[in-house]
Every structure is written in structure tokens, then in C-alpha cells.
Simulated assay, not measured.
Amino acid sequence: MTKIAAPAVSNRHPDARPQAAGTTPWAIKGELILNCNCTVFCPCVVSLGKHAPTEGYCQAWSGIRIDSGHYGDTDLSGLNVGLLLEIPGLMARGNWKAAAFIDDRADQNAYLALIEIFSGRAKGTTGLFKLLVSEFLGAERAAITYETEGKTRRLMVGKKIQGEVVPVQGKDPDRDIVATNTEYWMGSDITVATANKGRVRAFGRVWDFDGRSAEICQIDWSGPEVAR
């Protein structure tokens, strides 16, 4: 796993005219899983950040499976991304710390595109990262595996993130417990889940969130303006 600083350079052809940040059309569809240190389902989903995390602060890892996606003419389909997030209190107050792991199968154009998207510089759905993240800890290329087995989702980022989340079982075991029609930034329907495993050993962080809150969400993100 090679650590690479997130470069603030263009991935456009040298002969192309410069393009201002946040003007390239992009879109991602796929699935996101997240596991945090909250002891019960994350209150941020329904309070939209107006209620503090259950421990007063948030530490979380997340995995994104991109089923289809693009950044301008760069294809992002089939790639995976891992994230680390630290939020000291209420989400909206900012001062977040974040780090990204980019699928090592991504070519240079796709790598740079995903940095633009997940740093918030590409605007659109993930634009809040640019507003709320005060310290970007770095980006690394990594072997990232995102697996689905039945209702179980697993994320492996080398030895740095080992996660497994499952939906919390309801009265009808065939139906997931879902918070629907929310205004949560990730997506309107969030499946209530828990982590069978949530281990992080990265960027000086040593986290063990087994048994803690988790989320599963189908994502349909875009920016800055994409015709649907």
C-alpha cells in the first residue's frame, strides 16, 4: 500500500484549456456502508446533525462501492473507496478530519477524479466535505475489497480497515429496518445496521467498533449539475 499525497493538479490533457474547480459533471451510483462509534443507530440521520453523536463525538469508517460512475470523460465504474472521518461534535459545526483510500485499480485519471469528488472540490453531493473538513489527513492507493454475501457487507482495505456490517433484524426477518424519506445527505433511505467487525489501524487511529452503529445506503450522487 503506497501513501500518495492528494495532488492539486488537473487530469486534463496538457493542451486542453484549464477548467475551473467544481465545473466538471460527475455522477456515482452504488452502495455505501458506514460504521461509527455510536452505541445505537446514528442520531445524525434523523436529526440532520442537530443532535450530537451518542458519545459526543464521531469516529467512523466508510466504504463506497461504485457500480456506475464518471467524472467528465473518466469512467469510475467498478471502483471502491474507503474513508475515515472524525467529527468533534455536532456535524454542522465542522472541524472534521478525513482521509481517503482509493482503489489501486484506478488509473491516474480516475484516482485524481475520486480525490476531487471526495475532497468536496468537485462540488455537488459531496461538496459539504470542502465546507466541513478542516484537516485532510491524506490519501492512499490501496487494495480495497467490497463484498456482499446475502445481507452481509464486508469492506477490507489491506490491513487498515476490516469491516463487516449487517442489517439489524426486525420482526419480519425478510424486511430490513429502514429510515425512509430522510433528508440525510448520503441518501433518503438508510438501512439500520450493526457492525460484526469494525477495525481501523490507519493514520495513527486504532479503533474497534464491533457491535456499534452501522448504516447501509444506496447512493445516487452527482455534481455540480447533471441532467437526470
Rank of each mutant, 00 (worst) to 15 (best):
L83H: 10
I87A: 10
P88A: 05
I33L: 15
V46W: 10
Y57F: 13
I102L: 02
A92G: 15
L76C: 07
L85Q: 10
D75M: 03
R93L: 15
G30P: 03
K50G: 07
G82H: 01
S47K: 05
E31Q: 14
A99H: 03
L85F: 10
G30L: 05
Q59K: 00
G56I: 03
G49D: 08
K97F: 05
C44E: 00
V45A: 03
A52S: 11
I28M: 13
N95D: 14
D103Q: 02
N80H: 15
D73Y: 05
V46C: 09
L34D: 07
N95E: 14
W26K: 10
K50S: 15
A99Y: 00
T24D: 07
L90K: 15
G49R: 04
T23N: 12
A52Y: 03
A20W: 11
T54R: 12
T23R: 11
G69F: 05
A92D: 14
T39I: 15
A92T: 14
D75E: 08
E31F: 11
F101W: 08
E55A: 14
D67N: 10
V45E: 01
I102N: 02
E31I: 11
P53M: 02
A52L: 09
I66W: 07
L76H: 05
T74F: 06
S62C: 14
Y57P: 03
I102G: 00
L48S: 11
G82F: 01
T74I: 13
G30Y: 05
L85S: 12
D67Y: 05
K50Q: 15
A52M: 09
I64C: 06
A92Y: 15
P53T: 01
A60P: 01
G30V: 03
S47H: 06
F41H: 12
V46D: 14
A52H: 05
T39C: 12
E31N: 09
G22F: 10
S62N: 09
L79I: 01
I64R: 06
S62P: 02
E55T: 13
G63F: 03
G82M: 00
T54C: 12
I87E: 06
G30M: 05
C44Y: 01
L83I: 10
A99I: 03
N37F: 04
V46Y: 06
P88I: 06
G30F: 06
V40F: 14
L85N: 10
A20F: 12
N95I: 05
L90Q: 12
D75K: 03
Y71T: 00
H51C: 08
I33T: 13
Q59E: 02
G72E: 01
S47L: 04
P43S: 11
V40C: 12
G72F: 01
L79K: 01
N95Y: 09
S77K: 08
G63A: 10
H51K: 15
N37E: 04
A99G: 10
H70Y: 15
L48A: 11
S77P: 06
G82E: 01
G89P: 07
E86H: 07
